[in-house]
């Protein structure tokens, strides 16, 4: 299509089109804001509820504002003590930090072995490890429960760390295989010629080059472990090793006579670490998503 771009009428038309495309952005802003308000209603409910006493909750409408902010502290104390959330959050924190840390580290080592060294049929080794994620988690439940029971790993802190580490290895491996593979060959070849050990090449050449990906992967796995209910509900039933999500569920479930205000406060408490991580390390979370695809 041939156009005379100096034609003032044409330029005027372009400008009009440009303005027309600007205008709906305000309309879209209004629609988006409305949607957002509707979307955030459960959060509104969450934030008014944590400031109510049980009696107040049961007697007022769920949308009413609380009478005062004071009951919040009492709700926190109740959730913390009744549900055993204190112990459970320490447990989950250790599972999540260690599990995610170990898994990312071991996956990085494996990715290094797969991409930077001369391993025959590296692809087959990769597929072998990656096969661990092909199956839905339900496939592991019965064997893990029985196997843990037989080996004494059930209801043990170490057993939980091991199982979480194993589950969290394949995905980081998939990602790191890609990012390590993309690092220029010359870097480690040069280091090797200078006599650096493979461990040194790995630890001080390759790992620093993939720091962003490693942090993002750690965050993803941390969140997964912290949020897990399925594995911990089966493998860690005793109060000493119970995870935060199991404690939360126990508070909501059977035999509990706790008001909704306490249970909702507990669910807020159980989300604090992941939400904080998200707020402060959002950049890494978002880049983690790109890794995922």
């Amino acid at each position: 299509m041939a156009v005379d771009i100096s034609d003032p009428a044409f330029l005027e038309g372009l400008k009009r089109k440009e303005r027309a495309r600007q205008r709906p952005s305000w309309l879209r802003l209004a629609i988006a804001s409305l949607l957002l308000v509707a979307y955030l209603v459960p959060f509104y409910y969450l934030f008014v509820t944590i400031f109510k006493t049980t009696d107040e909750y049961l007697r007022s409408s769920v949308l009413d504002l609380p009478n005062s902010l004071a009951p919040f502290w009492d709700n926190v104390v109740q959730a913390w003590t009744l549900g055993g959330m204190g112990r459970a959050s320490i447990n989950s924190m250790s599972y999540a930090v260690l599990g995610a840390g170990l898994a990312t580290a071991l996956a990085a080592a494996a990715a290094y072995g797969l991409t930077r060294l001369k391993l025959r049929s590296a692809n087959a080794w990769f597929m072998l490890i990656f096969a661990g994620t092909l199956f839905p988690f339900q496939m592991f439940l019965v064997p893990l429960f029985f196997g843990f029971q037989r080996t004494g790993l059930i209801n043990s802190w170490g057993g939980m760390v091991l199982v979480y580490t194993a589950i969290c290895i394949p995905f980081p491996l998939l990602v790191l295989r890609g990012s390590f593979g993309a690092i220029a060959r010359e870097i480690d070849e040069a280091a090797r010629i200078e006599g650096a050990s493979e461990w040194r090449v790995f630890a001080s050449m390759i790992v620093p080059n993939a720091k962003g990906a490693l942090i993002a992967l750690f965050l993803i796995q941390f969140t997964f472990i912290w949020n897990d209910l399925l594995f911990s509900s089966i493998l860690a039933g005793s109060p000493e090793v119970r995870s935060i999500m199991v404690a939360l569920q126990a508070l909501q479930g059977t035999y509990s006579s706790t008001g909704p205000n306490v249970v909702v406060t507990a669910s807020l408490l159980s989300s604090v670490p992941t939400v904080l991580l998200f707020i402060f390390l959002r950049r890494y979370f978002m880049s983690g998503l790109q890794l995922g695809t």
Partner: peptide, 22 residues
């Protein structure tokens, strides 16, 4: 002493212990 909850998981624990011979 060792408490395990909830009840169904507790039963599962005992049953699988016995099925495994212990």
């Amino acid at each position: 002493g060792q408490q395990l909850t909830p009840t169904d998981r507790y039963q599962a624990y005992v049953m699988s212990s016995i099925a495994g011979g212990a």
